[in-house]
Design a protein around this nucleic acid. Structure first.
Length: 314
DNA sequence: CTCCAGGTTCCGG
DNA sequence: CCGGAACATGGA
């Protein structure tokens, strides 16, 4: 099996593969996800995280403060972390990639209709990540009225200018700047990162966190509704972004972010031709119809609609 | 040039 | 509570 993989890489001409990664500093681990498979590229390109760099047959990036390279194997993933970081780095990766989520169980909880079936088929193997709360929150504050490519560009700029530099398997990698770091910047410095009107919001949120007015570590102890209310107290954070953070950082799989794409799907498929459908009504419907893992379904619908430019929406 | 992008906030019914 | 408008920036 290993020989077959090696031969396959050799045929593909990936001479760099793992061999250029100095084995005395970098530890290779293979990880097995819970049932349901794992599509790494799909997961990292589905609009949850925005900083992973395609390279060397996989993806380079930081999991919090842990630089790594991740590659897709047939039914598992291959992880390179700094040997000095030991098993803590591996634990961080398992949590980040949500390898404990049983996708079969999650999928079986969804209702079946043409829209949902198509989205699930299209998004097979996609996992909802468990991202570090602050970087998830900050990134989605900068996401308002921006395309995915722009969000990624802003994340990259902030990391390069103000994040911590880490030594990765193939050069330097940058973690997301801490709330305290951003709190010490000026609005003008943030606007210089192409943040536009979001600069004031990111700065205000960073200062709220840095001054201890909101403790992100405490939110995991709260019921989802209370955690959402707390997040919505931050500048630039409304129900949509709060739900993104609850879903993508805190593993609240019942949280359903309703963005422009999900709203189109709801209005054109499930409320077709109906008048006076309020945002409140959309929230109630999606919560009850999608079920307790609705956030997962939402992400499949979002990814399908966005990448097909709403093909199913007429 | 116009339109739109993983929204939130503020304002008048 | 609800609909509208303003808010920056860049790609299609």
């Amino acid at each position: 099996m290993k020989a077959a993989r090696f031969a396959s890489k050799a045929r593909a001409g990936l001479k760099s593969a793992a061999r250029r990664i100095p084995s005395e500093h970098w530890r290779r681990t293979t990880l097995t996800p819970a049932p349901g498979g794992f599509d790494l590229a799909l997961t990292l390109n589905s609009g949850q995280a925005f900083h992973w760099i395609p390279a060397d047959g996989g993806f380079l990036g930081c999991i919090g403060q842990v630089p790594c390279l991740v590659r897709q194997l047939s039914d598992r993933i291959e992880l390179f972390t700094r040997a000095a970081e030991g098993s803590a780095a591996i634990d961080a990766a398992c949590a980040y990639f949500a390898l404990d989520h049983d996708l079969n169980k999650i999928r079986s909880s969804f209702p079946s209709d043409p829209t949902i079936d198509a989205a699930l088929e299209f998004s097979s193997g996609m996992r909802i990540l468990r991202q570090p709360p602050w970087e998830c929150l900050a990134t989605f504050i900068t996401s308002a009225l921006k395309q995915v490519a722009h969000i990624a560009a802003i994340s990259q700029t902030l990391r390069h200018r103000y994040g911590k530099r880490h030594v990765g398997p193939h050069g330097e990698l940058f973690s997301y700047p801490a709330a305290e770091t951003i709190a010490a910047l000026s609005e003008a410095e943030l606007r210089a990162c192409a943040l536009g009107f979001r600069a004031k919001n990111l700065l205000g949120a960073a200062r709220a966190i840095a001054e201890g007015r909101l403790d992100l570590d405490e939110l995991c102890k709260l019921p989802t509704d209370e955690a959402r209310e707390a997040l919505c107290g931050l500048p630039g954070v409304g129900p949509k972004i709060a739900n993104c953070v609850l879903l993508f950082a805190y593993g609240r799989m019942e949280a359903i972010p309703i963005d422009v794409w999900i709203e189109r799907i709801l209005r054109r498929i499930y409320f077709r031709g109906m008048r006076n459908v309020t945002a409140q009504r959309l929230r109630e419907f999606s919560t009850s119809y999608f079920g307790p893992f609705g956030g997962y379904l939402q992400q499949a619908l979002f990814h399908h609609a966005r990448t097909t430019r709403g093909a199913l929406l007429k």
